[in-house]
Design a protein around this nucleic acid. Structure first.
Ligand SMILES: [Mn+2]
Ligand SMILES: [Mn+2]
Ligand SMILES: [Mn+2]
Ligand SMILES: [Mn+2]
Lengths: 231, 231
DNA sequence: GAATATTTTTAGTCTTGCCTAATTTTGTGG
DNA sequence: CCACAAAATTAGGCAAGACTAAAAATATTC
């Protein structure tokens, strides 16, 4: 009556919730730098035990999702990387959904997306993507991988670093306090909003901007330091 | 880094995925009739084994979600019923979302909602409800429980049973074939669409209707038998 | 290069949720 | 009430995914 039936589309395999979380963590650790991805590092990220990690690494090797050579550390196979990117894609798309459609705030969306990223359906990510208007960045300014698994580099900086005269696009926030978020709402600034940096005032480092090509507004240095943008 | 942290709101407890599926099945079995809800019946609904069911029933009794007296069968406590209704509420709201916003068809939504119903967040159901415009019925014509756990009775009938001159509202479909669904789309009929039954033609039982108070259209008996409505 | 510190791996358990097989309880027809 | 069938329960196990403690392998340091 209520069995879970998954129809596998070509090449797409279903992994357990736990496996998916490992793949995602391994992907993120690999992005950071060329640091060796060790059981200890993974355990730290997953908030569990190195011994548990070793157990799971064996399973992931068997399933050809990772390569693991002792002393060389862990590396995702193409298959593993593809799976990881789909999970990240779903995570970030759901975050946009929660923020834009369900009016959650920037700091609430992550925890719920942590659950939603594990919903399986062949068309789900693409339909959600379309419904949201193909957003490029999630509410924290991180790029959303494309359907084919490509992910834009992160060029985000803070508003105060933008060159005078240039227009940038809001990709996220550094501060998630409700006072900041409310101020953003008041200024009609959200993800994707275009802001032109008119002038920087040397006296107190405040910044004159134009939101959506509207009238000039002055914002504080604190404000300009808290807004993540993409030139 | 990626732990699941749930903030429990007053009185709301988090159950495991398995527990939730048991609660939902027990609720549905209890609705049907005053048949005794036995381990065997539950096992059949969950497509598992009576011995497994007995194990779980003990846990549910411990957690005060059900009452279980041998020979009398299983009954949800108020706490258990409340949890079951929230799961059903989420299930049906997500089905509406998938149909209306992500353009899934009537027969695809159930399987995905089976997963989505288990996403936990104190405000999620209510925000989704608001976003969807407080729908009263899911795509299969079943009523959506309110935030407080009340659920309308099902008064749905087929369009062909509606009295001449009366207006009804579409609550679901009996046929989920794509040919039927495409025809519905062509006629601009969806969930909640108001249809007035103008006249029944005795010759071939076809029916003249007005969709959204628009011009009269004639539909076949087969069509009128396949559309679930609520007078 | 030996001694020590750190990391990784193994070994042995635990819990959850399921299973099969065996046993007990309950229900029914005569 | 007795015999038999059906349903419920118990007993014993298994796989996944976690844990602790101990052993083995690597890295560091003097
Ligand atoms: Mn996130
Ligand atoms: Mn996750
Ligand atoms: Mn359903
Ligand atoms: Mn379910």
């Amino acid at each position: 009556m209520f069995p879970y039936i998954y129809i596998m589309s070509t090449g797409s395999h279903i992994h357990t919730l736990s496996e998916e979380n490992y793949l995602k963590v391994i992907y993120h650790l690999g992005k950071d730098a060329k640091v060796k991805i060790s059981p200890t590092a993974i355990a730290e990220a997953l908030n569990n035990n190195p011994a548990s990690v070793v157990d799971m690494l064996k399973k992931l090797v068997d399933k050809k999702l990772i390569l693991y050579e002792k002393t060389k550390g862990v590396k995702l196979t193409d298959k593993g990387k593809k799976s990881a990117l789909l999970i990240i894609r779903k995570h970030r798309l759901w975050e946009v959904f929660l923020l834009e459609k369900l009016e959650y705030s920037w700091d609430e969306v992550h925890e719920i997306a942590e659950q939603l990223e594990h919903i399986h359906n062949p068309q789900l990510a693409d339909r959600l993507d379309k419904f949201l208007g193909f957003p490029q960045y999630d509410p924290h300014g991180d790029p959303i991988p494309s359907a084919s698994g490509e992910m834009a580099d992160i060029y985000k900086t803070i508003l105060s670093e933008v060159t005078e005269g240039r227009t940038c696009q809001v990709v996220g926030v550094k501060d998630t306090s409700s006072s900041f978020l409310q101020y953003l709402k008041k200024l009609d600034i959200g993800i994707g909003t275009k802001i032109t940096l008119i002038e920087k005032i040397p006296f107190d480092n405040s910044v004159i901007v134009s939101v959506k090509n509207g009238p000039n507004t002055t914002v504080s240095k604190l404000f300009a330091d808290s807004l993540l943008v993409h030139e």
